[in-house]
Nucleic acid binder design. Structure first.
Lengths: 231, 231
DNA sequence: TTACAGTATTTGGTAGGCCATAATACGATT
DNA sequence: AATCGTATTATGGCCTACCAAATACTGTAA
């Protein structure tokens, strides 16, 4: 009896992170925050040395990142950090628009006040981060805004897809949020999403969400087009 | 001169598929067509023997399938073939609806007659496969119908996402198309998509595409709910 | 200066081994 | 008989070392 009773409650949490997962996170981090620039070669043995792990682990990590779209594999030449071309970025924004729009509509149609509360919390966190000039915080809190949007209606698969795609445009995101326009427009558009959800206006919530990513995409394009010639 | 002249033209087409990719395809195939049932353990060393490759390759393949969602990894127990629960299937259908609806709308808005022609070709191929009772053909041609939908408007990223999700519900798909209802309804709904595209009716095309996957989802749920008790 | 041969680099792939953990079986003890 | 502890086995995680083939580099000879 003593063993069977609510043992789930006292279950010991153990880290259980394998070396592989740790290495995966490290390398993914290194790519998304620009430590490894796009196009750079990822030489297996160099990574082994830098990460302090064996080739086995490195290879599995590279395969994983490959299927995430963060690294590309040139045949007989090896893996490089994937280049992001503007068309692909546009497509990713478009997909995010479709899925986030869907999630927003579902939130509105559910009409539960907890959703509004949770989203408002995220939004104030974003505003605070903007106020503190904490750009990493803006990024993280924006993610969590959308995560609640999906989680509140139990759409974890869609959230997974969005998340997967988002890492590929991460450096674009970090550039768009730095724009002055974005720091005002962004939170405003997000509050419009919340308003529509509060009213139970599914159509409006969807449109507002799509507008929001469309605006992000437009800024990203502008930033990208001014940068390309310089490179 | 003899070596440099138009060597591109006579370039020997070599398979270039790495062993890893071959193994990946084999195992994925084995999972989607049910040779490895859901929940079954995938013991690395056994797979090595069955595939005739080394553990390195097998492990990389397993990682890849894991990130595709076809394999789940129980901590301290190893990989198993992922179980598909009904809620997840529903979510996948929903996402397909959103993305295929988007693609259909874009096709309609582009208004080029080649799209209509290509889609009609796919549709007649589907009808023929149904007529011949060739279910594998139905599946393949249905895929290619949607592939053209995405390709015609250059949305290869979205197509990749749909494709990725679709393998996870593949056995559901093969069950839904066997339904009598589906063999009539399916092509009919697809022709509605084409009609809307021909009219340039984006809204209608989107709705028709979403209806189509919604119907597929409904049948899948029906099939799944009659099966679960038996298991 | 060019062509070519040799060399280094690097991936793809293999073989085998070590260790930790989980489950199972088995034996001993109360 | 029930329980407890211990060996055994199966397996994943991880490592080292090795080889073959393709590519990139480099120095030398014509």
């Amino acid at each position: 009896m003593s063993g069977a009773l609510k043992d789930a409650a006292i279950r010991v949490e153990r880290p259980a992170k394998t070396l592989r997962e740790l290495a995966l996170d490290k390398v993914r981090e290194a790519i998304v925050n620009g430590y490894f620039r796009p196009g750079v070669r990822l030489v297996e043995r160099d990574l082994c040395a830098q990460l302090g792990v064996s080739r086995t682990v490195v290879r599995e990590v590279l395969r994983h990142l490959e299927s995430e779209g963060l690294v590309a594999n040139l045949p007989n030449k090896g893996p490089i950090v994937a280049q992001l071309d503007i068309d692909e970025a546009r497509q990713i924004y478009e997909i995010r628009g479709a899925l986030e729009g869907m999630a927003a509509r579902l939130c509105a149609e559910r009409g539960s006040p907890e959703i509004v509360t949770a989203l408002e919390e995220s939004l104030t966190a974003i505003r605070n981060s903007y106020h503190d000039n904490d750009m990493a915080g803006v990024l993280a809190n924006t993610s969590s805004f959308y995560q609640t949007l999906f989680n509140m209606v139990d759409r974890h698969v869609a959230w997974g897809v969005v998340n997967l795609l988002t890492v590929r445009i991460n450096h674009l995101r970090s550039m768009t949020i730095k724009t002055e326009r974005r720091s005002i427009e962004g939170p405003l558009q997000m509050s419009k999403i919340i308003d529509a959800i509060r009213r139970g206006d599914g159509e409006g919530a969807q449109r507002a969400a799509m507008d929001h990513v469309a605006a992000a995409c437009a800024i990203a394009e502008a930033v990208l087009s001014t940068q390309k010639p310089a490179e």
